[in-house]
Computed example of a mutant assay.
Amino acid sequence: MKIGVTSQNFKTITGHAGKTRRFLIYSQDERGNIIEIERLYLPKAMSMHEFRGDRHPIDEFDILITAGCGDGFSRRMASRGVKVVTTSEVDPKVAVSLLLAGVSLPPAQPHEHG
């Protein structure tokens, strides 16, 4: 399972998922430990807000954790087979750990799209 986390600074979970260009990517090793397997840094034209092609690197994620996104982004990701989870948790590894443990993440702050 690949879990992507929006992180413009590669340290904390950030919002505006449709415009995000930096992602931390996590998985589990054979013992179930959470490991960062990759960092994705996309050019502006590859942000989901700008992208209009068929295949995108985010399509490889099973789940995307973000601090905020609009309903349209969530629907678009669902149509691409990616489940979006929003949260107010700021630590990427904590969020991934909670998610994999089946614990609900703290809810995200309301997202205004304008």
Rank of each mutant, 00 (worst) to 15 (best):
Ala108Pro: 01
Val96Tyr: 08
Gly4Ile: 03
Thr14Pro: 08
Ile37Glu: 14
Ser104Thr: 02
Met77Glu: 03
Thr66Leu: 10
His111Cys: 15
Ile58Gln: 03
Glu38Cys: 02
Ile37Met: 10
Ser7Gly: 04
Ala17Gln: 05
Arg75Phe: 08
Ala45Ser: 14
Cys69Arg: 04
Lys93Pro: 01
His49Ile: 00
Ala17Glu: 06
Glu36Trp: 03
Ile34Arg: 02
Ala45Arg: 12
Thr66Asp: 11
Asn9Met: 03
Asp71Ile: 08
Thr86Trp: 05
Ala45Met: 09
Ile35Cys: 08
Ser104Cys: 03
Gly53Asn: 09
Cys69Asp: 04
Ala45Gln: 13
Asp29Ala: 00
Thr66Lys: 03
Glu60Tyr: 08
Gly32Trp: 02
Gly4Glu: 07
Met48Thr: 12
Phe61Pro: 02
Gln109Pro: 10
Phe61Met: 15
Lys44Ile: 12
Arg21Ile: 07
Ser97Ile: 01
Gly72Tyr: 12
Pro92Ile: 03
Leu64Thr: 05
Ser7Leu: 08
Arg52Met: 10
Cys69Glu: 07
Thr66Trp: 13
Leu40Asp: 13
Lys19Arg: 13
Glu38Ser: 09
Lys2Asn: 15
Met1Ala: 13
Glu112Arg: 14
Leu64Pro: 00
Thr12Arg: 09
Asp91Gly: 00
Thr14Gln: 00
Val103Trp: 09
Ser79Glu: 15
Met48Phe: 09
Asp71Phe: 09
Pro110Gly: 13
Lys19Ala: 13
Ile3Asn: 07
Gln8Pro: 00
Ile63Gly: 10
Met77Trp: 09
Ile25Ser: 07
Val103Thr: 13
His16Trp: 07
Leu40Ser: 06
Gly68Val: 07
Ser47Arg: 03
Lys44Asn: 12
Ile37Ser: 08
Val90Arg: 14
Thr14Gly: 08
Pro106Gln: 05
Pro107Cys: 05
Val85Glu: 15
Thr12Ser: 08
Met77Leu: 14
Phe51Ile: 07
Asp71Met: 04
Asp62Cys: 04
Ile25Cys: 07
Val90Pro: 02
Ala95Ser: 08
Glu36Lys: 04
Ile65Asn: 10
Thr20Lys: 02
Gly18Gln: 06
Pro92Leu: 07
Glu60Val: 08
Val90Leu: 13
Cys69Lys: 01
Glu50Leu: 10
Phe51Arg: 07
Gln109Tyr: 14
Gln8Ala: 15
His16Met: 08
Leu100Cys: 12
Asp54Val: 04
Ile63Met: 13
Ile37Gly: 03
Arg75Lys: 12
Ser79Phe: 15
Val82Asn: 06
Arg52Ser: 12
Thr86Glu: 12
Gly72Glu: 14
Arg22Trp: 11
